[in-house]
């Protein structure tokens, strides 16, 4: 067995990521409209920006996929002219790393809804960390900051945890995921 990601893994990860990159791009204006209200309702849909990492990992189930997917999606949003420019890339790297760490902590052995949600939460925490520098969020009134925390994390669980998992489950039923799932030892043993 070759170590690392094969070309098929990489290309499939990147196409999934770019699809979400397009969605990320479209998500920007939507987020903008909701955000002008100022009450952090927009944070509930912020979780969409973590979904590429989770979905790609749940499909391909290999180390490195989550990080690659999130960077690729951010890169996609960036080259499609996303409103946040280079900031997207920095957030992408941070969020991807955070999600990857969660999957690594469970040794890439778990693919359930809980792990997806945890990865979403980790990505949310990472994004909040970057926002301290980027958005001066430390200078928000405390109650407001707490709402931001709460809603962003809730949104992460909802979208990049639960929804991502349901989406991949639906995709599994179509059989297409078998293309990229690695063969097991049993499969090799069956050859005799």
């Amino acid at each position: 067995m070759e170590k690392g990601l094969k070309l098929t893994d990489i290309l499939v990860t990147i196409i999934i990521a770019l699809i979400f990159g397009v969605i990320y791009k479209l998500w920007g204006p939507l987020y903008g409209v909701v955000a002008t209200l100022g009450l952090h309702l927009e944070q509930l849909i912020y979780g969409m920006w973590f979904i590429a990492a989770v979905v790609a990992y749940l499909i391909i189930r290999k180390p490195g996929v989550a990080l690659l997917a999130e960077i690729a999606a951010a890169q996609g949003e960036f080259i499609f002219g996303g409103e946040w420019g280079v900031a997207t890339l920095i957030f992408g790297i941070g969020q991807g790393l955070a999600a990857e760490l969660i999957f690594a902590a469970f040794r890439y052995k778990r693919y359930d809804m809980l792990i997806a949600s945890l990865a979403g939460v980790a990505a949310a925490v990472a994004s909040i960390g970057i926002d301290f520098y980027y958005g001066y969020i430390g200078d928000l009134a405390l109650w407001n900051l707490l709402i931001l925390f709460g809603t962003r994390i809730a949104g992460a669980i909802l979208i990049s945890g639960i929804f991502a998992h349901l989406l991949v489950q639906a995709l599994e039923k179509t059989g297409v995921t078998n293309l990229v799932r690695p063969a097991t030892k049993e499969d090799y043993q069956a050859l005799g």
């Binding site: 499939v12 196409i15 699809i19 995921t177 293309l179």
Partner: peptide, 12 residues
Amino acid sequence: LSQSIRRAYRIA
């Protein structure tokens, strides 16, 4: 998604 995954796989 499924169409894109299949296509990406074939291209690879």
